[in-house]
Amino acid sequence: MPRAFPPLEGSSKNRPLSPSLVESVAGFSAGVVSCLTVHPLDLLKNRLQLNTQTKSRRGDSFRILRHVVRDEGGVKALYRGLWPNMLGNSLGWGLYFLFYGKAKEVLQKRRAQGERLGTGEFFGASIFAGLLTGACTNPIWVVKTRMLERGANHPAAYKTMREGLAHVYSTRGLRGLWAGFVPSTLGVAHGAVQFAIYERLKHARGEQLGSMDKLTNWDFIYMSGGSKLLAGAITYPYQPIRARMQQYNAASQYSGLIDVLRKTWRNEGFLAFYKGVVPNTLRVIPTTIVTFVVYENTKYFLPRIFEGEQMAHDED
């Protein structure tokens, strides 16, 4: 699936789009498309992570899905919490790629002309982007976690995201809106590992082909999927811990991060830290592939479409 259109020749009068704007639009678009693709698996992962009553058992995923469809409003119940999830993903990816691109620009200026960034610099740029993005979007994830935790027919369920934000703030203050941020910072390592691997694969493949513009969608598929799978295997345990710190009754169940870790280990064992890993893997691999394919193609075509419109305007 090569990108079939060649770059457009821009006139000297054309004002190219800002790289930061391109990165943001590409990331935002990727977040929307990927979220719409696999939201039901996100709901399933969330329910598995918040199950503190039993140890992991075979068939848990099917039992949860059957319960949601049967008791919570049919198939549409699988899309409970879609809007905060879409907002969090699209805004999160948009901000992430914006901060990531800015960090790379700053680091590149410190390099000699034509010298490529190293793995450590990609890793550092990812850490920087992940921390800032997490700080900006954490309240959205708190509400999303709570909306996925309970069906719409539950008497205490949030009807809207605005209601959720207001309830969290009124009951737990600002601390509640940023609940789970500390384990989320551990997850920043996940993005850093993933992007470091992805960038190395991307540049190696680009050098092999002779140009980065020759990379195809198939290249983006295997590079993004492979880097995500490896990073996920290393860093997954922070996700169940974060979800438990963000749930409705977290304040009454746990006193903090260490308490969550201790009780989870004592009551459910080591495998509790990998609850939901199967639906999460089934969710994140296609999601990541869709995200990066949309991102790379938007980043490639958006400036060229803009240049084409500018040329047409100049000719008129």
Rank of each mutant, 00 (worst) to 15 (best):
A231H: 01
A231N: 02
A231M: 02
G232D: 08
G232R: 03
A233E: 02
A233M: 12
A233Y: 07
I234D: 13
I234Q: 11
I234V: 14
I234C: 10
I234P: 12
T235Q: 06
T235E: 01
T235R: 01
Y236G: 00
Y236M: 03
Y236K: 01
Y236F: 14
Y236L: 00
Y236S: 00
Y236N: 00
P237R: 02
P237W: 06
Y238E: 02
Q239M: 07
Q239I: 03
Q239T: 03
Q239Y: 06
P240Y: 06
I241W: 03
R242M: 07
R242W: 01
R242T: 02
R242P: 00
R244K: 07
M245Q: 07
M245W: 00
Q246P: 00
Q246S: 03
Q247M: 13
Q247G: 03
Q247I: 05
Y248H: 12
Y248V: 12
Y248I: 09
Y248D: 12
N249I: 09
N249L: 11
A250D: 04
A250R: 08
A250L: 01
A250C: 04
A251G: 01
A251D: 04
S252N: 12
S252K: 10
S252I: 03
Q253H: 09
Q253D: 09
Y254G: 13
Y254H: 14
Y254M: 13
S255N: 08
S255V: 00
S255H: 01
G256M: 12
G256S: 07
G256H: 09
G256N: 09
L257M: 07
L257T: 08
L257K: 07
L257E: 04
L257Q: 08
L257V: 11
I258E: 14
D259C: 10
D259G: 05
V260L: 06
L261H: 05
L261A: 05
L261V: 11
L261W: 10
R262G: 13
R262E: 15
R262N: 15
R262Y: 15
K263R: 13
K263H: 10
K263Q: 15
T264P: 00
T264R: 02
T264W: 00
W265I: 11
W265H: 15
W265N: 14
R266Q: 15
R266N: 15
N267W: 00
E268I: 10
E268Y: 01
E268N: 14
E268C: 02
E268Q: 12
G269R: 07
G269T: 12
F270S: 09
F270L: 15
F270V: 14
F270W: 14
L271D: 11
A272N: 03
A272T: 06
A272H: 05
A272W: 06
F273V: 13
F273N: 13
Y274E: 08
Y274P: 04
Y274T: 15
Y274L: 09
K275C: 08
K275A: 14
G276M: 02
V278T: 13
V278W: 14
V278C: 06
V278L: 15
P279E: 02
P279H: 07
P279F: 10
P279Q: 08
P279R: 06
P279I: 09
P279K: 08
